[in-house]
């Protein structure tokens, strides 16, 4: 979610020093407010506590569920489920985050920064060869409809409509990712963890007291305190 509404590649890094990450108009505010509104206006399932992932995949294919907020890793699973449900797998596709900057949609790309060779490795040549195989020959990116790490490689077919519609793909900067993670852990916010969004959903459906504003305010306080303490 970070970066997509604002089309800002530095959105993640900005959190390292931000004392108000949920400020109106910011990425987290736009994204989490959208989630809040979806649940608050009863556009999602009635009881989020008993949903079933395997069932939901088929329901997406048959149109019972209009859309799901997922990463690109899910599309292969979803297409498999569509085929099992007797539908054409191509009914499953991507949609960019519904916000535009200068008339253009943006979508964030997270790099595969975990591919590396350990400097302490005794078998650097073998590790390197494995990496080359992984990237060049395994067909891993293709099988997962992921954007290949190889420079100049074509986009996966699932992303072709993005190219046609002029969606900008922006690579989210990870320069301060370590610092942001440290703050995230110290504040116990968990930007990439389910907990605070579960709470937001509970508030939105009236199962917990408060409103979107109070939830954001509490998260902001925790985040800001952690930033002040230096992570």
């Amino acid at each position: 979610m970070l970066g997509s509404p604002s089309c800002d590649a530095k959105a993640g890094d900005a959190l390292a020093t931000s004392t108000d990450p949920w400020a109106t108009g910011g990425d987290l505010n736009v994204g989490d407010s959208l989630l809040f509104d979806i649940v608050n206006k009863k556009l999602s399932e009635e009881d989020p506590t008993t949903t079933n992932w395997e069932d939901s995949k088929g329901q997406l294919a048959t149109g019972k569920i209009a859309g799901m907020w997922l990463g690109s890793w899910a599309i292969v699973q979803m297409r498999d489920a569509a085929e099992k449900a007797g539908k054409d797998p191509s009914v499953i596709g991507y949609m960019p985050f519904p916000a535009q900057v200068n008339g253009k949609f943006c979508s964030m790309v997270t790099p595969d920064y975990l591919y590396s060779v350990n400097v302490h490795s005794k078998n650097k040549a073998a590790a390197h060869a494995w990496l080359r195989w992984m990237l060049d020959e395994s067909g891993f990116a293709d099988a997962n409809q992921a954007i290949s790490s190889v420079r100049g490689a074509p986009l996966p077919t699932a992303l072709k409509p993005f190219g046609d519609a002029g969606v900008q793909l922006v690579e989210l900067s990870q320069v301060k990712a370590g610092q942001v993670n440290a703050i995230d852990n110290a504040s116990e916010v968990g930007l990439n963890k389910p907990d605070y969004r579960q709470r937001l959903i509970d508030v939105a459906r009236g199962a917990a007291p408060g409103d979107a504003k109070s939830v954001f305010a509490e998260l902001t306080t925790r985040w800001a305190d952690a930033v002040k303490m230096g992570g």
């Binding site: 009881d47 989020p48 506590t49 008993t50 199962a207």
Partner: peptide
């Protein structure tokens, strides 16, 4: 009655 056995915070 439609009861949210796990979804209702008073009942979960």
């Amino acid at each position: 009655a439609k009861i949210f056995w796990l979804g209702d915070p008073d009942l979960v």
